Amino acid sequence: MELEVRHLRALCAIADAGSLHKAARLLGMSQPSLTTQLRRIENSLGAELFSRERTGCRPTPLGRTVLSRARPLVSGMAALVTEARAAADRSAGPRLRIGSTASRALVGWLRRLRHRLPGTDITLRMDVSAGALLRMVASDQLDVAFVHEVEGCPLAVPEGLVARVLLEREPQFVSLARDHPAAAMPVVDLADLAGDRWMVDPTVDGEWDGLRRVLGEAGLNPPVLHGDYVTAASLIAVGEAVAPCQPTSAPRDDMVVRPLRDDPLAVRLLLFTRPEPGGAEVGAGGAAYAGAFADLEAAYREAALRAEDYRRWLALHKSPLLHAPAA
């Protein structure tokens, strides 16, 4: 087996993260796949590069030697890719590379961007991990990233990125079966869901930690299912689970969306980009980024007002979102 740059990148990620689980998330792969890759690398070299301990992975003496040679190679390759992409950008015309976690504002945002920036190549990258998207902005693989930060679980923001706050605190609602006893109430207490299974996607940065904290503070310890939210919707509809959801979520014939009393769950909505050397925010060469935040604000307001329960919540809290800014 010949070592490739991707193998060296994996070794550096394991050393930096301190565990195979965390390194796999950084690399966007499963832990079993990374474990298999590490085993093949070590078999090829004929010795262990990391000692597996209860607290994680630590480089062996040979591992430290290999890492000392691997890091400059990985760094040099990353610089080469960045410079090549920058050269391609200069010759390919204007483009705007957007990253985003899930949001119902995306459709309206893209529609506004395409209308305002005709001739610009606008691409979208979706990811459940805000951290992964921020690393892509930092490495010049994306121009901007629209992400959410779970309250109490701050994101690991790469050095140098700048952010604008779209919404300081967006309440998270709960989705439940239409025939659930709590569905008849306009506002749901956490105590009303004490007997329910909760479903959460652990791959969404901060999601499980945030929910666990809120349930613990309420004195609840319900059974929790881990899975994606597409699967969750099917289980919620038949009464097998409840789950936190965005307030802009649309109800269905078999499922309702309700606010939680006192809004214990919340996220902060942010738009990240890189600064130019002079300090100005950049996107697609600066021009394409100008106005992107305003387009996002308008798209989010549109999605918020379309959701009946969220619209009532906004009116109750006298939110400025109810009023469009002056032209």
Rank of each mutant, 00 (worst) to 15 (best):
I122C: 04
G56V: 13
T65E: 12
F50K: 01
G131K: 01
V137Q: 04
A86S: 14
P154L: 12
A79T: 12
V74G: 04
G108Y: 03
S91W: 02
V128Y: 03
L134W: 11
G99V: 10
L155M: 11
G76Q: 10
G63I: 13
R114L: 11
V144K: 00
L67Y: 07
T82F: 00
F146M: 13
R135G: 05
E48Y: 04
A79Y: 01
P61Q: 08
S129E: 11
L155F: 06
L124S: 01
R125K: 13
L133E: 09
T82E: 15
L73N: 01
L62H: 05
F50T: 06
R58F: 06
G46D: 07
S129L: 12
R64G: 13
R54P: 02
A105M: 15
W109G: 00
L80V: 14
M77H: 12
S75H: 06
S100C: 13
G152C: 06
V128Q: 05
G152H: 02
G131D: 10
G93P: 09
V74R: 04
E48M: 05
R69K: 10
G131F: 04
A102L: 14
L155P: 09
R58L: 12
M136L: 15
G108N: 04
T65A: 11
E151Q: 13
P118K: 09
P94R: 02
P154E: 06
R135D: 10
R69H: 12
S139D: 15
P154K: 08
R97L: 08
F146S: 10
L96T: 01
R104A: 10
S51T: 15
A79M: 13
C153A: 14
A156E: 15
